[in-house]
């Protein structure tokens, strides 16, 4: 009896601190945001209840929709372009000799450990129109017509920032996928090879289907990571030209802190939280639902 009690006690002791801290620092802050979004608030004082006015007025502004387009563009880039590239890279790492494998893994991790500030600053230099890396390369191979001011051109700005983001995290995702590949029993491959399958067939029929758990994990991490996309934009373009490279998080902070409209800023936050929940629900529900077993 005494032992049972002590086990119960220990569960409480182990779980309570985290539960308490999560409630205080993750969940509780959402409540004042919800309250604020219904008020005209300048960050220091409440100027009156306005109901859903903040919601209607943020949804009427064009910046709101521009920022959504940009955020989802980044999500699309990292999921539709980034993940397949990571997958190819992971499959490639898998067939190397151990020594090269170690090299590729380190090279792949490297960009991900650098600070966003470091990465963004350097890429700003690459995109510089007069002497930057990209325009220099284009000029030296005679494609002068393609040179442009990448970060101030409204057509290229988001793609350029997206490329930087891709560069930073493709390797990390590749490593996650590769670690998954390693757990697939080798005798599956041997059986397939005896049956005369080629490398491509092995990848598409065995490796990828068996990798669903890891893929789901990587998909969740990278889509939510892109939803929170902010720092690269802040350092590389400060949202410009105009509001054309703002993401939702950027727009939220800009509205709250730079224009002192906390009511509207928190309204954006509430709308965005709902979107995040819907997306993660969709991933949980529809991606990799059934386990593949041989």
């Amino acid at each position: 009896m005494n032992k049972f009690f002590s086990t119960k006690m220990s569960i409480a002791v182990f779980a309570t601190p985290a539960l308490l801290l999560f409630t205080v620092f993750c969940v509780y802050p959402l409540l004042p945001q919800l309250w604020m979004s219904l008020h005209n608030h300048n960050g220091f004082q409440n100027l009156g209840f306005v109901g859903f006015d903040n919601y209607w007025s943020v949804m009427k502004s064009s910046s709101f929709w521009v920022s959504h387009r940009n955020t989802y563009l980044i999500v699309a880039i990292s999921v539709l372009i980034g993940l397949p590239l990571s997958m190819v890279f992971a499959l490639f790492i898998d067939v190397q000799t151990p020594r090269l494998r170690r090299f590729f893994k380190s090279a792949a991790m490297f960009p991900a450990i650098l600070s966003v500030i470091v990465v963004s600053q350097i890429w700003v230099a690459f995109y510089e129109p007069n002497w930057g890396l990209f325009n220099t390369i284009l000029r030296s191979i005679g494609l002068d017509g393609l040179t442009r001011s990448w970060l101030t051109n409204e057509k290229t700005v988001m793609i350029s920032i997206g490329l930087t983001f891709l560069w930073q995290y493709i390797g990390l995702n590749a490593i996650l996928l590769y670690t998954g590949i390693k757990t697939i029993p080798k005798n599956y491959y041997e059986a397939a090879l005896i049956d005369g399958a080629n490398a491509f067939q092995v990848s598409t029929r065995i490796t990828i289907p068996l990798l669903q758990d890891v893929m789901k994990y990587v998909l969740i991490l990278s889509s939510l990571g892109s939803m929170a996309f902010y720092a690269h934009v802040r350092v590389m373009t400060a949202g410009g030209p105009g509001d054309l490279s703002r993401t939702v998080i950027y727009q939220m902070y800009y509205t709250a802190f730079d224009t002192s409209q906390f009511g509207k800023g928190t309204a954006i936050a509430v709308i965005f939280i709902l979107q995040c929940l819907v997306i993660s629900f969709l991933i949980q529900r529809f991606v990799a639902r059934e386990k593949v077993e041989f």
Binding site: C26, P29, P32, Q33, G225, I249, C276
Partner: peptide, 12 residues
């Protein structure tokens, strides 16, 4: 709590 990026709760 993991699904909601911490950034959106930062104002609160």
């Amino acid at each position: 709590t993991m699904m909601v990026p911490a950034q959106v709760g930062l104002i609160g």
